[in-house]
Amino acid sequence: MTEQRSYPRRVKTEAGDIEFRLMIRDHEAAVLAFAQKLPTHDLLFLPRNISEPKVLSAWGKEIERGAIQSLLAVREGRVVGCGTLVRDPHSWSPHVGEIRMVVSPDVRGKGVGKALSQETFALALGAGLEKLSVQMTVDQQAAIALFESLGFKAEALLRDHVRDVDGKTHDIVVLGHNIAQVQAQMEAYGVPDAVSGN
């Protein structure tokens, strides 16, 4: 299944109307403003600190190169979430993609994260990937539950894998999803049941 989704795309959430847009270089300033308001802990599971302008600039270049696709969740003109699909077609794992997602604290628990994770997951399905992974700190229980609801399962625990600004280390959990199984479910049961992990 390689359906290409079109953007912008609007969804209704408890936090209000959210518009999903594919990120382009022109969005860097808006994404930087979003990232700089996030609690530092929320950035720990990302490989790089996206609240730094040079990291955002490199991110923009990766988008232009096609290695990364990022979806922005925008509410009332402000970025409130970002879901990113990262893949490396030149690696030993060209069939694997990684989802990275972060949502503004003021819209958490209001359906924005769920809608963004489903939309990013759909983007991954459209890219024809066979496997997906996502990682987060072990205390991010709501995020873990969200991805488990999409059919992701814990595959690894990386102890003391990241160090915060105070020097404290944190464990990272890696969740994985075998898309081939989802595609079989889609054929058997239809898209909604398969995406919800039923």
Rank of each mutant, 00 (worst) to 15 (best):
Y7C: 05
V11Y: 04
K12L: 14
G16Q: 08
G16N: 07
G16R: 01
E19G: 00
F20H: 02
L22K: 06
M23K: 01
I24G: 09
R25L: 08
D26L: 06
D26F: 03
H27P: 03
E28M: 13
A29N: 09
A30R: 14
L32Y: 08
L32F: 11
F34V: 08
A35E: 14
P39N: 10
P39M: 09
T40F: 08
H41L: 12
H41M: 13
H41R: 13
D42I: 01
D42M: 08
L46P: 05
L46E: 06
L46I: 02
R48K: 14
R48I: 12
R48P: 00
E52V: 08
P53M: 06
V55A: 13
L56K: 02
A58K: 01
K61L: 13
I63P: 03
E64D: 15
E64N: 13
R65H: 14
I68N: 04
L71R: 05
L71I: 12
A73Y: 01
A73V: 06
A73R: 04
V79G: 04
G83A: 07
T84H: 03
L85P: 02
D88M: 07
S93P: 00
S93C: 14
P94T: 08
H95V: 09
H95F: 15
H95K: 11
V96Q: 10
G97L: 07
I99F: 05
R100E: 10
M101V: 14
V102C: 10
V102S: 05
S104H: 14
D106V: 09
R108N: 06
K110R: 13
G111E: 00
S117H: 01
Q118C: 01
Q118F: 11
T120I: 02
F121T: 04
F121L: 15
F121K: 02
A122R: 15
L123H: 02
A124S: 15
A127V: 04
L129M: 06
S133I: 14
S133D: 07
V134N: 00
V134R: 04
Q135E: 13
T137Q: 09
Q140D: 11
Q140S: 13
Q141G: 06
I144L: 06
